[in-house]
Design a protein around this nucleic acid. Structure first.
Lengths: 178, 178
DNA sequence: TAGGCTAGAGAACGTACGTTCTCTAGCGCA
DNA sequence: TGCGCTAGAGAACGTACGTTCTCTAGCCTA
C-alpha cells in the first residue's frame, strides 16, 4: 500500500473525525465509533494517528485551513459585509453547532490551546487585512472589534438567536441601510 | 442531622464543583476528586445530588444566579459603561477561563442546553433593561447587540487578547472619548 | 505450491470513573 | 451497659474507552 492510499485513509479518518467531533464533542466520540464511521481498521487508524490527542489536533488544524479558505474565497475582493453574509449562511447550515475551536477549548482546555489560538490568530490576521483594505484608521483595533463581533455572533447563533449575524453587522457597519 | 446542616453540605459541594468544573471542565473532574475537595463523604454527596448530571445543572444554575447578581450590583444605576468595567475586572481575575455556560455547552451539548439558554436569556433580559433605560430606539436589537459584544469579548479575552473589553466597549458606545 | 508479508476484524487489556455497598466507629438513649 | 441509628471511609462493581494484541484470510513471489 503506497503513500497516496495512505493519505486517502487519512482523509477518510479526518472527514469522520470532523463530522463526529464537531457534532457531538471530542470526548463523546470513541475511537471505535470513529473507526466504524471512517471505514478503516483500528490498526490503520492508529498507524495514521498514533493517539486520539494527535487526531484531535489534526482535525482542528485541517478545519482551520478549510474554514478560513472558505471564508476568504467567499469574500473575495469584498469586505465586512461579505464576511457577515458568509456567517449567515454558515449559521443557517444544517449541522451548525458554533465554533469548533471554542467548543474544543471549553471541553479540553490547555490540551488544545495551541491549535485554537492559532486559528483565532489567523482569523484576526485576515480581519486585519480587511480593515486595512477598507482604510481603517486603527487596523488593530478594528481587527479586534471584528473578531469580537464574529465570535460573539457565532456563540449567540449557536444558542438559537436567529438574527445574530444581522445585529453584529449593524455594529460593524453602523452606517448601513436596512 | 437537620436541614440547615444539609444545605451547608450542599453549599460546600457546590463551591467545590464550581471551582473545579469551571477551572478544568466537567468531564475532567471525577466525583471522587469532588468529594475530596468538598470534604464530604461519597454517600452524602449522592444524597445531596443523586447524579453528576444533577450536580452539573445545580452548579450552572447557582452560577447564573451569582454571576448576574454580581453584575447587577456593580452596575447599579449605571449603564453600558459599567457593564464593560465589570467585565474588565472579571477578565483580569486570576481564575478567569471564559464563560462557564458556553464552555459547558461546548463540552456537553444538549445535556446542558436548558440551563445555558436560561442564563443567556436572563442576561439578555437584563441588557434589554439597560437598553430601555438608556432610551434605545430598538431595545431588542440593542439587547442582541450588547449580548454579542459581551459574549464576544468574553471568548476573545479567554484566548488571551488583553483589550477585548475595551474594543467591545467602543463598539457599544462609539461616541465615547478615550 | 509453499512461505511469508500485509491488512482487517475484533478480542483483550488496563485504567478511569460513576455509582453502590460494606464495614466500622461513635453517639443518643433506655 | 447494651442497642440501634447515623455517618464516614473507602472497597467494590459495572461500564466505557484508549490502546495493543491475536488470529485469520488473502496475496505476492520464488
Amino acid at each position: 500500500m503506497d503513500r497516496s492510499d495512505n493519505s486517502a485513509h487519512e482523509t477518510r479518518i479526518l472527514d469522520a473525525a470532523e463530522r463526529l467531533f464537531y457534532a457531538r464533542g471530542v470526548q463523546a466520540v470513541g475511537m471505535d465509533e470513529l473507526r466504524t464511521a471512517a471505514g478503516v481498521s483500528l490498526k490503520r487508524l492508529y498507524q495514521s494517528f498514533p493517539s486520539k490527542e494527535v487526531l484531535v489536533t489534526a482535525y482542528l488544524d485541517r478545519r482551520d485551513e478549510r474554514w478560513l479558505s472558505s471564508l476568504r474565497t467567499f469574500v473575495g475582493d469584498g469586505g465586512v459585509l461579505e464576511v457577515f453574509t458568509w456567517l449567515v449562511q454558515w449559521f443557517g447550515s444544517e449541522d451548525f453547532r458554533g465554533c469548533a475551536f471554542l467548543n474544543a477549548f471549553g471541553e479540553l482546555g490547555d490540551q488544545v490551546v495551541r491549535p485554537v489560538r492559532r486559528h483565532k490568530d489567523r482569523l484576526r490576521a485576515y480581519l486585519r487585512e480587511l480593515a486595512v483594505r477598507e482604510g481603517a484608521s486603527d487596523p488593530d483595533l478594528r481587527a479586534d472589534q471584528l473578531l469580537i463581533l464574529v465570535d460573539g455572533a457565532t456563540v449567540t447563533a449557536m444558542l438559537g438567536r436567529p438574527n445574530a449575524a444581522g445585529a453584529a453587522l449593524r455594529l460593524a457597519l453602523p452606517d448601513m441601510r436596512g
